[in-house]
Design a protein around this nucleic acid. Sequence first.
RNA 1: GGGCGUGUGGCUGAGCAGCAAAGGCAACAGACUGUAAAUCUGUCGGGUUCUACCCUUCGUAGGUGCAAGUCCUACCGCGCCCA
Length: 400
Amino acid sequence: MTDTNEQKIDEVLNRGTIVEILPTKDEFRKELLSGKKLRFYIGFDATSPTLHLSHAKNIILMEKFRKLGHEVIILFGDFTARIGDPSGENSARKQLSRKEVVGNVKKWKQLIKPLMNFNDLKNPPKIKYNNDWLSKLTMEEVIDLASNFTVQRLLERDMFQKRIREEKPIHLHEFLYPLMQGYDSVAMGVDVEVCGTDQIFNALAGRDLIKKLKGKDKFVIAVTLMENPKTGELMSKSKGTGVFLDAKPADMYGQIMAQPDEMTEILFVNNTYLPLEEIKEIVSGNPRDAKAHLALEIAKIFFGEKEAKKAEEEFNKVYRDKELPSDMPVFNTNTREYFILDLLCDTRLAPSKNEAKRLVEAGAVDIDDKTEKEWKKSVEIKDGMIIKVGSRKFVKIKLK
RNA sequence: GGGCGUGUGGCUGAGCAGCAAAGGCAACAGACUGUAAAUCUGUCGGGUUCUACCCUUCGUAGGUGCAAGUCCUACCGCGCCCA
């Protein structure tokens, strides 16, 4: 029997993470209220070894359904990862080797541990791999599955249309992606699929398929991709806006502080457990403090209170109070006198001499708290000397 | 198989025979601040005897020019159309 507390259910449905429920939100709500135990799933393609806050948000949502008493499956797309979903990309993703994918999945399992209670023996979250069934399909079965779709239907997808317009390639295997994702639903016999709004097409393909093959319906819950409300951009590595779950506490705290201010509320809603009213209040205050609160709150989820506090202290110390970090890389040398450019390169504070030169000219290099603006000189090395480049890079010299 | 296009720095995307190669993104630094936000400014292939000089880069290999991403040839990859 599942939890049918109306208030709890509505809190999950209305918090803001869920953007759309198909076929309708009302029907889904009714289903939850009925007390029937539903089988949920969310799929992740292990295309990269790391996860970021957007993935975390999805896991958090799944955990909420699990806590209501439903069966929850995290599906690692170890098979689909090797094909690559065309969504969002305007060219085909490179296909990954079996080995890469297995390595990624292993890391992921560790990363999501803080977000789900795997020790709940009564109703533990389940982990499945779609390689288990997709790799076993015969050509005959694949063709049979394909006969459920039309090329026109597949071509409707925005991104395919875009590629046609731009005369970019569409590979045949990319067409098979919705088919495979759809088959996942059939193989697991799920009642509900949770996916990002960019995946609705694939999820609906699964809905059609499960209807045709098993005569049962499936709900599709589309969740926010956490776009920046100002620019519409997603969190991404290439935009430098990613917050990675495998980061060290101090780095994760820093990555959150580096988020644009307008992301604070969105991240609060999706990546913390704080009640909405409390979030409203925090966000209405000083933006800097609100974000700091957010960073602490999220770091707490992954590393615990103690580590999170430590990360915060360190951040304030180095960036707010401009003090030295508590530990920094040490560079061992026995050279007494060093050309400043060589010193910067050897300590790996600069990747090349030209770059080192530029840094010195820009006034970015401090040696023992004194800004060094002259690059054509050598410095006398002292034990314990501290070289600082920009506000984030420090090296302590140890004279042998 | 035939025709037409296309291949540029981390990404994107300009490029006339005389550019280390416009613009945008990302990155880095400086100023400012409320933070590693925002904004503004500068930098953004490597090296040196450093406001100058040298070397290496524009799919690959050759060729024509004093000079070639920029023209020619072949090859490779990709796209479109025809078959």
